[in-house]
Design a protein around this nucleic acid. Structure first.
Length: 367
DNA sequence: AAATTATCAACGCCACCTTG
DNA sequence: CAAGGTGGCGTTGATAATTT
């Protein structure tokens, strides 16, 4: 390798390592998403957008090994969502053209990258904490306080299983290292939730910019409402709410609420947010209110499609990352019967009320 | 600069409601 | 009556904003 190229690469590696103190923060997230799109080198078209969203954000549930489309506890073998997860996993493997066994490697790009940045930062923090910890423990020296990280119960389980293969007894310190590693391994999945929320907004923003050829300034995430053209500062004192995603085109302003999945408490917010937007609107012109999601729960999807505000449909569009994925998940081979809620969702898809990301991106280009 | 508080999404768990 | 759906609530682990 030529000398100049080598040093440039070293510089890149070095800056990557030191620049990341908030691995899951907005800056690093966007840097990583950018990296993904630049290195994939594909021009981003509406039709392939769903694949990028899933490659970046979707993950496989470690307890089932399947692509995640519903809450883990409800997706365990034997429960209804296990069948739907199997169907979704199968559909997705076909879509990516890979075997079901290796699908997990195709997805979860953003989390995997951010986690390695996080681990690097944790190593540095550890040194500082360790010296503080020894100061904190100093006054109690000699009183045999429990060692941090020790987990005798977990160590016991491992010891019982492995006993026939152990030629000697590991030291207490070695057990602590092992149990801490096991705990860290199990804790990793809990960190995901810190990335998916705002990561979804950022990924969508980049997908929209690239697929619809819009500028950075016309597609923005987490702006205050009054920073969007044609919206006033609310006078009613309360907290300033941020808009998940705002698309500003000459012919149309679009306010997007982007939720990877829905919870009841957040569902209630949709209407109060919308009321705030309507009150703040100052140009006397129509704006679109759009809900983008990867929710698979039929009841939650149905409610979003049917939601009214002052007797009109509240959302102009309800967008799922891929409605074919929803249909695939609902049609499980071992039980062909379809309940009312799922049938209603099918109807919304047929009637164009619930649309795919691809369709919505095409609409944005045309408006 | 450090500490506190707010926010967010996922998830587990529980209680209640529906449905067959 | 049992199973499954639903909603509420609290916990977790992270960042961001605000206060001290």
């Amino acid at each position: 390798m030529p000398e100049a190229e080598k040093s440039a690469e070293e510089l890149l590696n070095r800056t990557n390592e030191q620049a990341v103190e908030r691995a899951f923060g907005a800056e690093n997230r966007n840097k990583l998403i950018d990296q993904y799109f630049v290195s994939s080198r594909n021009s981003i078209e509406a039709a392939g957008a769903w694949q990028h969203v899933y490659r970046l954000l979707l993950w496989s549930d470690p307890t089932t090994g399947l692509a995640h489309c519903y809450e883990s506890d409800k997706s365990q073998p034997g429960k209804p969502w296990y069948a739907r997860s199997l169907a979704f996993h199968s559909w997705l493997a076909d879509g990516f053209g890979v075997q079901p066994a290796v699908l997990a490697k195709e997805i979860d790009w953003l989390f995997v990258k951010a986690c390695s940045d996080l681990a690097a930062a944790a190593v540095k923090r550890e040194e500082r904490l360790a010296s503080a910890a020894s100061r904190q423990r100093a006054p109690y020296a000699g009183r045999a306080f429990p060692e941090p990280g020790a987990d005798p119960e977990l160590a016991g389980i491992i010891q019982d299983v492995m006993r026939p293969y152990l030629s000697g007894a590991p030291s207490d310190a070695e057990w602590r290292v092992l149990t801490q590693k096991v705990r860290q391994f199990l804790a990793v999945q809990n960190k995901r939730k810190n990335l998916v929320g705002e990561g979804f907004e950022d990924v969508l923003a980049q997908v929209i910019r690239r697929a619809c050829r819009l500028s950075n300034s016309s597609v923005q995430s987490r702006r205050l409402l009054y920073e969007i053209p044609g919206f006033n500062r609310a006078r009613s004192g309360g907290k300033e709410n941020k808009v998940d995603l705002a698309i500003n085109q000459p012919s149309m302003r679009t306010i997007v609420t982007a939720k990877w999945s829905v919870r009841a408490d957040r569902e209630k917010q949709f209407a109060s947010d919308y009321e705030e937007y309507c009150n703040a609107e100052s140009e006397g012109k129509k704006f679109n209110y759009v809900f983008v999601t990867n929710e698979f729960d039929p009841a939650r999807l149905m409610r979003a499609c049917d939601a009214l505000f002052r007797n009109n449909l509240m959302f102009d569009y309800i967008v799922h990352i891929n409605t074919s994925a929803v249909m695939a998940a609902y049609n499980v081979p071992d039980n062909p019967s379809i309940d009312k809620t799922r049938e209603r969702v099918f109807q919304h898809i047929r009637e164009g009320r619930l649309i795919s990301l691809e369709n919505w991106l095409d609409l944005i280009v045309r408006q």
